Amino acid sequence: MQPVALRTARLVLDLPVEGDVARVAEYCTDPLFEEYLTTPWPYTEAHARGFLTEYVPSAWSSGGELTWALRAEQGGPLLGVISLRTDAREVGYWLGSEHRGSAYMTEALLAVCEWAFAELPGTETVTWRANAGNVGSAMVARAAGFRSTTTPETTVPGRDGADLVGWSGERGATPDADAYESWAPLLGGAA
């Protein structure tokens, strides 16, 4: 599959490239990444280079995982990354700390979901999972119309391969009317 660029009102979602190595390496040293993501820890420039020059192009080529860079303008600096694992129609994402609270990731997630429903045959739902306690990621999923599907059995893979307690959600092409309320047990009244 060839990389596809997406545009939103404020963002360009395009292919993350080798020129993004320094930003990826910087962002992925955030202590939240150690707690909530499966990226290598400690994270180095070598990890970022391998991700950008080997993993991302190979995954696009095979169609197995489609990864976009978030940018405020064409050719602009990397703000974050969003991926869609096509076999499970599962999204994953992260945003550089100085860009959190901007609603950029919700905007990007909506664009990726819209693209998946329109362009990936057989897409009926898009799923999301995160480590339990990742409130920021859950708030993005909630804002993008995902319904919480979390049960006591929900898990996510950990960095070492062991399953961890997780949270999950899903959405169809049109969010369920009560999707927002489904998050109350996890997020309470979090804005």
Results as ranks from 00 to 15, higher is better:
Gly169Arg: 02
Ala118Trp: 01
Gly92Ser: 14
Ala177His: 10
Tyr104Leu: 10
Pro121Gln: 12
Cys113Asp: 13
Thr125Glu: 09
Thr106Tyr: 03
Asp176His: 11
Asp176Glu: 15
Arg147Thr: 15
Cys113Arg: 05
Val91Gln: 05
Glu98Cys: 00
Met105Gln: 06
Ala111His: 06
Arg159Asp: 08
Met139Ile: 07
Ala179His: 12
Pro175Glu: 12
Ala111Asp: 09
Val156Asn: 07
Ala144Phe: 02
Asp176Pro: 00
Arg129Ala: 14
Ala173Gln: 11
Thr154Cys: 04
Arg85Lys: 09
Val156Gly: 08
Ala132Thr: 10
Phe117His: 09
Phe146Gln: 02
Glu124Gly: 13
Asp178Gln: 13
Glu90Asn: 07
Trp167Thr: 10
Arg142Ala: 04
Asp163Glu: 15
Ser97Ala: 15
Met139Asn: 13
Pro157Met: 12
Ala173Asn: 02
Ala173Leu: 00
Gly172Glu: 10
Trp94Met: 06
Ala116Tyr: 05
Tyr93Cys: 06
Ala179Asn: 11
Pro152Trp: 07
Val140Trp: 10
Val126Ala: 03
Phe117Arg: 09
Val112Met: 10
Gly92Pro: 01
Thr174Ser: 13
Ala144Tyr: 02
Asp87Trp: 03
Pro157Thr: 14
Ala130Val: 09
Gly161Trp: 13
Leu95Phe: 06
Arg159Cys: 11
Ser148His: 03
Phe117Trp: 08
Gly133Lys: 13
Met105Glu: 03
Ala88Glu: 15
Val140Tyr: 10
Glu153Ser: 11
Ala138Tyr: 11
Ala179Thr: 10
Trp94Asp: 03
Glu114Asp: 15
Val135Lys: 12
Arg147Phe: 01
Gly96Lys: 03
